[in-house]
Design a protein around this nucleic acid. Sequence first.
DNA 1: ATACAAATACGATACGGAAAGGATCGTTAA
DNA 2: TTAACGATCCTTTCCGTATCGTATTTGTAT
Lengths: 213, 213
Amino acid sequence: MNPRLPDLRDRSDARRPKGRPRSHEAHVAILKAALSEVHELGFRALSIDSLSVKSGIAKTTIYRRWPNKAAVVMDAFFYEIGPGIAFVPCEKSVDSIQIQMQALAKAFRGKFGPLIKALLGEAQFDPELAEAFRDRWIAPRREAAKAVIRDAIGKEELRSDIDLDTTIDALYGGLYYRLLIGAGPLSQAYVDDLFRHVMGGLRPRSRKGSRQA
Amino acid sequence: MNPRLPDLRDRSDARRPKGRPRSHEAHVAILKAALSEVHELGFRALSIDSLSVKSGIAKTTIYRRWPNKAAVVMDAFFYEIGPGIAFVPCEKSVDSIQIQMQALAKAFRGKFGPLIKALLGEAQFDPELAEAFRDRWIAPRREAAKAVIRDAIGKEELRSDIDLDTTIDALYGGLYYRLLIGAGPLSQAYVDDLFRHVMGGLRPRSRKGSRQA
DNA sequence: ATACAAATACGATACGGAAAGGATCGTTAA
DNA sequence: TTAACGATCCTTTCCGTATCGTATTTGTAT
């Protein structure tokens, strides 16, 4: 996983290894080929051979850097998504959460949906891929979410007795559920609904049926 | 998908087709071989060839009945799980929901976890499999859940303004999330936590910090 | 009833193709 | 000198199809 890119930062103390360095152009060419193949033909139709043809990079070179096609596509995914879907600060922290949920759903609906589906699908059979996906995609987002949730608790926008992990699961589980199982659209309205349901709870609040946004 | 079994119920009006009927023994032998292979070696290591060897049934016969190994494993899954995880009626309908969530999580933790992971993983690349899984596994359970939720609403255990589908997603999304992503255990405590969070909501209830089960 | 034909499943085998993944080796860039 | 690159070859595995003789059922004629 995580192939070492040639270290282009020339820190004078960090000595370059002796031989011919790995080609950065080759690296990018492969990732771009992987993206176009997975978008046009799908993950299953992609093979290291087809990648080699499309990118013009020898198959052996690809195998020198990645153990399998899933690892390539994973790197391609992060190459394309860059810093990813971040939380934008809002006056109310819960708004920040809702907006981020909408952003994630939008990514799921768009070109990243098939990529994440493919990676998670493959991860069901490849523990290393699963771990890498958790470390590189899931965990950072969960950490960011926890910070926002803590803020929200501090501002008394959320209960003080909630568990952070469970809260994240309750909010985001539905999004991944719909992405992976497809039992319903990932529409904007759905995300708002899900957010409202989890925020407000399912139990009757009081005698006066007050519905909160 | 769904290969026709020889109709052993001899309804006198339902005429048997002319030729040699399909062997029920062969059918069961294949499903059992599929189960043992997927449990022992995993879905990826399973192939139609290995299935043929293990079951003693010719490869051609398997291909006559199923289009690919995923379809075999899907039938094997339903063969093993039988009627599946049902809702048991309780005095309070919400208890029935919580108990069913625990049962599902237990199945995920047990021998059905790998099976469902494999089927859903494969479904990310096979739209027909995905649809079949939704139709045969997801949809019936959601329908059953809806009935219970409607009951609960009728008994004023749940708010009257909730959306059934969104409610189900909020409750069960986290379970599938943990099964498929593995970001945390599917423990009994977790299920109770998730249930409590979704039921009670995340927003502060009142000035008195009353925590409800 | 018995014999035979038609229909269909089964088993065995062979085949072509795709892809994985490794090995070799001459070439190229530091 | 060192290590990456590209080209090529190779074995293995599996897929999915095709062929063909055998076995088991139903329908029909005797």
